[in-house]
Design a protein around this nucleic acid. Sequence first.
DNA 1: AGCATAATCGATACTTAGTATCATTTGATG
DNA 2: CATCAAATGATACTAAGTATCGATTATGCT
Lengths: 147, 147
Amino acid sequence: MLSPDEILAVIEDGGFRSTASRRRLADVLTSHEEGFTAEELVAETPGVGRATVYRTIRLLVEQELLCKLSLPDGTPRYTLAQRGHHHHVVCQNCGSVREFRQSAMERMLKELESSDGDVVTGHRIEVFVVCAECLVRGVVPTNVHQH
Amino acid sequence: MLSPDEILAVIEDGGFRSTASRRRLADVLTSHEEGFTAEELVAETPGVGRATVYRTIRLLVEQELLCKLSLPDGTPRYTLAQRGHHHHVVCQNCGSVREFRQSAMERMLKELESSDGDVVTGHRIEVFVVCAECLVRGVVPTNVHQH
DNA sequence: AGCATAATCGATACTTAGTATCATTTGATG
DNA sequence: CATCAAATGATACTAAGTATCGATTATGCT
């Protein structure tokens, strides 16, 4: 997993400053095993302003150190980035996040490229689950109709 | 494509009432070829309250007559539902929406099912493009880093 | 070490997208 | 055509994030 120092290194390599707030956030960030919300970060870094938390999140998403994803209803969650291209498996109940890779799927999406006059610039794939932990706690999986 | 009457029929079949506001919205909805925002609908149906517009959108998404999707930055858009399971190709510049189907991809996602103790309840796939129309208008495609 | 200054900060006000409340209106049914 | 739950519009609120701005601070320079 990513360490606070690695996060700070990417920030500095990007030409941004290594500040007290960013160090605090890097620490809190790396302590999260699962997905988290922006407001959780705000609550966990007292003294660091809301605006700074959101600014730092935006910076880290741009630097591809954080992934922004969303639950079926659209509420946002963040998770520390994994190495390389990947997608997310999100528990719709507790919001925990795992990753998956499937290169066959990537290839398929690339084939769309020529379908129309459009230029493909990216894609988003999220798989929704009820995770094993939620299942043992008695959560009943109900299908979500997403596209 | 979907007609206002078809929308009203689904509403009534669902046990909901056919009201003046819903008829107005059904008309406006079906006049949209491309994707649209909730606030566009609010602006296009003067006299119908904001709350009613959002309530009706929610109803129609539940009835699977509308699809809710989002641009790379997360801002939401809606589009009239196509028949059967499908996914969306969204222009990141103008927000226009096309659909695509790829049954091989569906099959692949189903295979994930057994990977962990999780139960898969759904998935979301969006492909981002700069569409042909935007390209001729000089929009330069830049890759978005999504997952 | 001291300084200049652009980057960053926190506080605060604002925006966007949507939900909750509630008194009033309305459409389906008998 | 009376009933009454469903639906409505006005309004206040929430969630997630952005813009503004005066104060602070990290970094490069000497």
